[in-house]
């Protein structure tokens, strides 16, 4: 019984993946590209950084990085809370 359930799950998941792989865009040509074109053309002039990825991460989308830093801080606080019990 368990084997059949696992086989059905495997078939369903691989079927979905194959379905989406058949329908995929060609590599490097996304559907909507207005935002990409804006970043690629104007980021070097506005932020004056050569690395466009860093200028997006720290300047255009700074709130995202703030959230990521908060997640990391929460993880460290959780680990130190768990292992604090071992220190006598």
């Amino acid at each position: 019984m368990r084997k059949y359930v696992l086989l059905a799950a495997l078939l369903i998941v691989s079927g979905f993946m194959l379905l989406s792989a058949v329908d995929m865009h060609p590599f490097g040509s996304p559907d909507r590209e207005d935002m990409d074109k804006y970043f690629i053309n104007n980021a070097q002039e506005e932020v004056s950084a050569n690395n466009v990825v860093t200028s997006i991460v720290f300047d255009y989308r700074g709130f995202d990085t703030l959230g990521e830093a908060t997640v990391l801080f929460t993880a460290v606080v959780g680990v130190s809370l768990i292992f604090r019990r071992l220190i006598k």
Binding site: V47, S48, A49, N50, T54, S55, F58, D59, T65, A69
Partner: peptide, 13 residues
């Protein structure tokens, strides 16, 4: 010596 606050934020993060 370019790109404003980005190096400072890089060091902080």
């Amino acid at each position: 010596d370019t790109s404003g606050v980005l190096p400072l934020m890089n060091w902080a993060v």
